[in-house]
Computed example of a mutant assay.
Amino acid sequence: MTIRSCRDGEQAEICAIINAAAEKYRGVIPPDCFHDPYMTRDALAADIARGVVFSGWEEHGKLAGVMGLQIVRGQPLIRHAYVPPALQGKGIGSALLQFLIGQCPGTILVGTWADATWAIRFYERHGFKLTGRDETVRLLHEFWTVSDRQVETSVVLTRP
């Protein structure tokens, strides 16, 4: 079991992990915000082109979790943190998050859906704090490229 940089050619695996884990959002986040598939290969390629660098937890030669890091105007953002449902609760997400935190001096931001309470609790267990509504809106507009609808239905957490 190792954490490593994801490689070119692993986009299909990354999408499969994201889409399997994102099923948890179905029926929780607003229906107009859930796409099927949740992450297309084109959308993943666009995020990678915008600087999202993925790290993965490799187990038995196969990716078993992924998490992205993107630096936007000097600000580190955790992006697309997913572990397949069958492997959740085994410390993979925590290990990936701690690995990325170790690469980022200073404040780190993460955005997630406001109704994804399990995700919010996960980040809070790792020292992240919810920002207030006005700060969330400001940060989402400043560091993310998301729709107004996603801004309405999202939160941002910060870790000093």
Rank of each mutant, 00 (worst) to 15 (best):
C6M: 14
C6V: 15
C6P: 10
R7S: 13
D8R: 10
Q11R: 12
E13A: 15
A16T: 12
I18W: 00
I18E: 00
N19V: 14
N19W: 10
A21Y: 03
E23W: 12
K24R: 13
V28E: 04
P31Q: 12
C33M: 15
C33K: 06
F34P: 07
D36K: 09
D36R: 07
P37G: 09
Y38V: 12
M39N: 07
A46S: 09
A46L: 08
A46T: 12
D47W: 02
A49H: 03
R50Y: 01
G51S: 02
E58G: 01
Q75H: 08
L77N: 04
H80W: 13
Y82M: 05
V83N: 04
V83G: 05
P85M: 06
L87Q: 15
Q88D: 01
I92F: 13
S94N: 11
L96N: 03
Q98D: 03
F99R: 10
L100Q: 10
G102F: 06
C104Q: 08
T107W: 00
T112G: 12
W113F: 14
A114I: 06
A114Y: 07
W118P: 00
A119Y: 02
R121G: 04
G127R: 11
F128N: 11
T131C: 05
D134I: 02
D134H: 07
E135S: 05
E135K: 08
R138N: 04
R138H: 06
R138M: 03
H141R: 15
T145C: 05
V146Q: 01
V151P: 05
V156K: 01
L157F: 08
